[in-house]
Simulated assay, not measured.
Amino acid sequence: MGKPEMKIGEISKPRFEFRTFGQNFEESAKRMARLSVPIPEKVWERESVEIYILSKTNDINNTKIRDGKMDIKTYIETVDGLEQWNPLMKGEFPIAKEVLEKDVFPAFQVKMPKLTKDTYTVEEFLAMIDAHPDLQGVRVYKQRFGYMVNNTLCEVGNVLINGAKVVTINSESTEIEDIKKTIADCKLDGVENINYLQAIKRVIGWINKPLAN
């Protein structure tokens, strides 16, 4: 029985991912584009504006808001330098107090503010985040170009983190060896694996470390 084929936009078992951030991955991006098999037109280029919720005490739960919906992914493990993440919860605004108490604030691993309402709009939620000493909302604009190389889902993206421009490139799959081959084929061997949480914290000064280049 062969390996499962990755399909863009379909839910699979938790994927492993290589991702990095820096100022210039031009050579790797060109190779990725040329090595890619044809993909659906809807993922040739995508744009989005998202708000990531950063916590000074948490590096294992990735929380973001896009199109009025909250998405939390949690870190599972690292194998051969590749990180595996899994969906933890998805929610819509207005969001219930019980969801904030049981799922959202525990994921931030911070002291929970006093919740006095039954539901909260996205504006009310973000106001609580801004008022919390250990949390910060960060606006992230993404322009992503999708590819598929060695049966891995890939992208090159122009990203604005609170207006600071960086570039990201990634490969993800359920199959670790396919990602390793893609890293080699795209000349990304030895480049640091940096996830979105780590990249944003470096850009806003919460982690005193540069990006990959």
Rank of each mutant, 00 (worst) to 15 (best):
S28G: 00
T78K: 11
E41F: 11
S55K: 05
K42Q: 13
S12W: 07
E27P: 01
F93R: 01
I65V: 15
K64N: 11
E26M: 06
D67S: 15
R15C: 11
G22E: 03
V37D: 13
N86S: 14
M6R: 09
I51D: 01
K56D: 10
P4A: 09
S28T: 01
K102V: 06
Y52K: 00
E47Q: 13
K3I: 14
K73V: 02
E10C: 07
M112R: 15
S55P: 09
F25C: 00
L100P: 05
P4V: 07
P106K: 09
N62R: 13
E101P: 03
A33T: 08
G9H: 10
E27L: 09
W85R: 10
K111W: 04
Y52H: 00
E83F: 01
G91S: 07
M112W: 04
P113T: 07
G68K: 03
E45V: 06
P106N: 08
Y75V: 02
E92C: 08
E83G: 01
A33L: 08
K69M: 15
S36A: 09
F93C: 06
I60H: 12
L100H: 05
Q84P: 06
F18V: 00
K3D: 13
S12Q: 11
D80F: 04
E5F: 12
G68A: 06
P106V: 05
K90V: 11
P94Q: 00
V110M: 09
K13D: 14
L115R: 05
A33C: 09
D80G: 01
N86Q: 14
F25S: 01
F16C: 05
N86H: 10
I65A: 14
A29I: 09
Q84V: 04
W44V: 06
D71M: 12
E47V: 04
L54A: 07
F16M: 03
M112T: 14
W44E: 13
T20Q: 05
E41Y: 08
F93T: 07
G68H: 04
F108V: 02
F108I: 03
P94N: 00
T74F: 13
I8M: 10
A107E: 04
A96I: 02
K102C: 03
S12I: 03
M32R: 02
K30G: 05
S36D: 10
I11W: 10
L35Y: 01
T74A: 10
M70A: 14
D103W: 09
D80Q: 12
A96V: 02
M6T: 09
K56A: 12
K111I: 11
G2C: 08
V99S: 09
P113E: 08
I51S: 03
V49F: 07
K114V: 13
K111A: 14
R15Q: 13
T74D: 05
G9I: 08
D103C: 04
K90P: 01
E77C: 09
L35D: 00
N24V: 02
P4F: 08
L88Y: 13
I76K: 15
L115H: 06
M112A: 05
K13F: 08
Q23H: 08
S55C: 07
Y52D: 00
F105Y: 15
V104P: 00
K97G: 03
E50V: 06
I39Y: 10
I8T: 07
V49W: 04
T78Y: 02
A33N: 11
T57L: 12
E26K: 13
M89F: 12
N61I: 01
I76S: 10
G68T: 04
